[in-house]
Design a binder for these strands. Structure first.
Length: 767
DNA sequence: AGGGTTTTTT
């Protein structure tokens, strides 16, 4: 059977020649992904530049590139190339470039005119990923500057009119697919979330008993529901049935079972939405749709995310239905009533409206778009979302309040393929000599879940994990896991024995090296620190906006944002172990409760740097000095908004500096009329085991307060707390140190990250 | 106190 799209060849070429933008609509199987690039190449569109094709997933980009290379008679990397993260198979001669949409976004950051390209094709635009929506907005803006650029938006038959209208009523070309009919069977009544597991299991059993052969694909919301459906079906002891769960956190071997064929048996795949878009399973004849989906949402007012079970949209349910009928006519059993379906929203809310915009706004500003609220999106995010993005970027120091452009820190952050908060940690790490450590942590934080807890082996897994966990920090835990992984010589068996996901660790390795390379281009030295507190502080600086303070029992609340009743996630290394008053979290996600994940304890002395509007450092005071030493220890109190002391930080300074600090304090004490007193110990009459410290000055006698700690023969500045029956009680305020070794060398200024930022800014000069 | 849909990035 000839691909239906071949009949449309001339129309498509003509439309692209005549219009800046066209929308091509066709179901999977229409061949649009592979054929349109070939048409455009054959029609000569590669003569004036590269034809770029974006895909939402790496496998799609690489496999279509390989297929098209074969058709054209090229090898991948030559005329037809592809680029995905960690894998660039393109050359100067590449005319057709397949890539993930993330790569095209990065190219916008390097050259906002996309000058190399003559045509850009955005595939799977209907998925409405964050990247696609951002790219479509950028392309609309770019078309004002580049009249010669051609844009093709390829989508399933979902919201083609929306795309067409967005690009000034661009022509829409429909390409029929090669779908077989899929009959819909409606449920009798609506089923709630509680009952859906039993209803699903019963429906699958019934199909198995009464329908002709053919595999079944069932859509549920998550791992737990999938497990319960599988268990329920196992209890029914049906014959000739193979049950295969399908979700992302499954180990690789388990995932392979999804694609295996089981001759003589009926395969039943119970899946999350992974089977709706990411993986395609051949030979599905029956789809059973619960009608529910788990969806991540973002709440800009609080900065928390929520993972919600919601009714799936009409277009999403249609997508599920389409998973049957790819090889023969199929049936789709919907476990909800037709009347319920009609009331559902037409489309799933695009991702750009359900995430923090901080990363998108950072990228926009890096590209040179200052008035971000005026940027044209297909579906514009809310004002609150833009406000949250701004506040987050201000808190991170990427932009300054009241100004449009990026700071030097912001420019460096934009160059790192990380979320803004995670990128900020690395900039902080540069100041404290731990870039390698924090880049490693960043790689873990930006990857998937490393700690595996296979079902039935939870206890063994937890036991293995305990040995790796740092009770104060998930970030430091990651560092420990990395060290041990290196010690094992990157051994898969070691990962398996310790219940760690080896694929994730290999990806962490790749991300690490990518980050190291970028940092090298910034002129950052690769540094490591043995001081875990320094590393943890860099992490905390990036996450400062999500600072949480202990409120009651196990719950925490936001300091800088309105968040209440946050609990440490049971999977966190600090769960059940921390009694820290402050913590930071890499994520706050509401599921059954609001959970903080990726937690690190915060020391009070970090607070003034993390949230200067809420916490201050007191004046420095001399805390300790050893006679003859070249340096002294000074301490600064950490104060909250009411001036209450929350803790203190200490640092070592040259004696000359300590002398200056003490002199200033003495001047202040004298101006306030404090008394300078030297005490001696006097055993008190009847109770010889208690001691009291007394001092005489100006013919008067003073007694140190009962709890005061004083040393004999050392002068203290004191304040009067009580006078009773002629006896004056005083409270020592500070000790006066006798410095006998004025040091000659003044303090050395610390290396400044701003200097390095300027260096990078200079070498970044945009063309 | 007790547990997360999915994808992607110079």
């Amino acid at each position: 059977m000839e691909l239906p799209i071949l009949k449309e060849r001339d129309r498509i070429i003509q439309a692209v020649s005549d219009n800046p933008v066209i929308v091509v609509v066709g179901e999977t199987g229409s061949g649009k992904t592979t054929q349109i690039p070939i048409f455009l190449y054959e029609a000569g569109f590669a003569e004036s530049g590269v034809i770029g094709i974006t895909e939402p997933r790496r496998v799609a980009a690489t496999s279509t590139a390989k297929y098209v290379a074969g058709v054209i008679g090229s090898t991948p990397g030559d005329l037809v190339g592809y680029q995905v993260r960690f894998d660039d198979e393109t050359t100067v001669g590449t005319a057709l470039k397949f890539m993930t949409d993330g790569i095209l976004l990065r190219e916008f950051q390097i050259d906002s005119n996309l000058s190399r390209y003559s045509v850009v094709l955005i595939d799977e635009a209907h998925e409405r990923s964050q990247n696609v929506d951002f790219i479509l907005g950028l392309l609309k803006d770019l078309l004002k500057r580049r009249r010669d650029l051609k844009v093709v938006v390829a989508s399933a038959t979902i919201d083609e009119q929306k795309f067409s209208n967005f690009f000034n009523r661009a022509p829409v070309i429909n390409v029929s697919g090669r779908m077989f009919p899929v009959e819909v069977v409606w449920g009798k009544e609506d089923v709630d979330e509680e009952m859906i597991v039993e209803v699903m299991a019963d429906a699958i059993a019934e199909i198995h008993r009464s329908e002709p052969e053919g595999d079944i694909l069932s859509f549920m919301t998550g791992e737990d529901q999938i497990r319960r459906v599988v268990e329920s079906l196992e209890r029914m002891k049906l014959t000739d049935l193979v049950l295969v769960p399908a979700h992302a956190s499954l180990p690789w071997e388990e995932q392979q079972k999804i694609f295996a064929s089981y001759p003589g048996k009926r395969k039943v795949i119970v899946a999350t939405n992974i089977a709706e878009t990411s993986i395609t399973i051949d030979g599905i004849v029956y789809v059973v749709d619960s009608g529910f989906i788990k969806q991540m949402n973002f709440h800009p007012e609080s900065g928390i995310q929520s993972l919600d079970v919601v009714l799936h949209s009409k277009s999403g349910c249609e997508q599920r239905r389409g998973r049957a009928g790819r090889t023969q006519p199929g049936k789709c059993f919907r476990l909800y009533a037709e009347s319920d379906f009609r009331e559902r929203p037409q489309f799933t809310e695009p991702e750009i409206k359900r995430i923090s915009l901080a990363g998108v706004v950072l990228a926009m500003k890096d590209i040179g778009i200052d008035k971000v609220e005026e940027f044209e999106f297909v579906d514009p995010p809310s004002r609150e979302a833009f406000h949250e993005a701004h506040e987050t970027l201000i808190a991170l120091g990427a932009i300054q309040r009241g100004s449009h452009g990026l700071t030097d820190i912001g420019k460096m952050m934009a160059g790192l393929p990380l979320e803004p908060r995670i990128a900020r940690m690395i900039i902080e790490a540069e100041k404290h000599g731990c870039t390698k450590d924090v880049a490693t942590i960043a790689a873990f934080l930006s990857g998937r879940q490393v700690f595996a807890r296979p079902k039935g082996k939870e206890i063994q897994a937890d036991r293995a994990h305990v040995a790796l966990k740092n009770p104060a920090s998930d970030a430091l835990t990651f560092l420990r896991v990395w060290d041990k992984y290196e010690d094992s010589d990157f051994d898969n068996q070691w990962c398996y024995d310790n219940f760690l996901n080896a694929r994730v660790l290999r990806e962490v390795d790749d991300i690490r090296y990518q980050l190291f390379n970028i940092l090298e281009s910034y002129g950052f030295e690769p540094t490591e620190s043995s001081d875990t507190a320094v590393i943890a502080k860099a992490v905390a600086m990036g996450l400062a906006y999500s600072l949480l303070e202990h409120r009651s029992r196990h719950s925490y609340g936001g300091v800088l944002r309105q968040i209440d009743d946050v609990f440490i996630h049971p999977g966190s290394a600090i769960f059940g172990l921390s009694n820290s008053r402050w913590i930071v979290a890499s994520e706050v996600v509401r599921t059954t409760k609001t959970y903080a994940r990726g937690c690190t304890e915060v020391k009070p002395e970090w607070l003034p740097d993390m949230a200067p509007q809420h916490f201050k450092r007191g004046e420095p005071v001399v805390a300790r000095y050893l006679k003859g030493a070249e340096s002294a220890v000074i301490s600064k109190a950490v104060l909250d908004g009411y001036g209450h002391e929350l803790g203190s930080s200490e640092e070592s300074v040259p004696v000359a500096e300590a002398i200056a600090i003490q002199k200033a304090r003495v001047r202040d004490a004298e101006s306030k009329g404090l008394l300078k007193l030297t005490f001696h110990n006097e055993a008190s009459g009847r109770y010889s085991f208690t001691a009291s410290f007394v001092a005489e000055a100006g013919g008067k006698r003073y007694k140190a307060s009962y709890h005061a700690k004083v040393e004999e023969g050392v002068p203290y500045y004191c304040k009067v707390v009580d006078t009773y029956l002629g006896q004056t009680t005083v409270e020592p305020v500070f000790q006066v140190f006798a410095f006998n070794n004025p040091a000659p060398s003044p303090g050395q200024p610390l290396s400044s990250v701003e200097e390095l930022a300027q260096k990078r800014g200079a070498s970044l000069g945009r063309q």
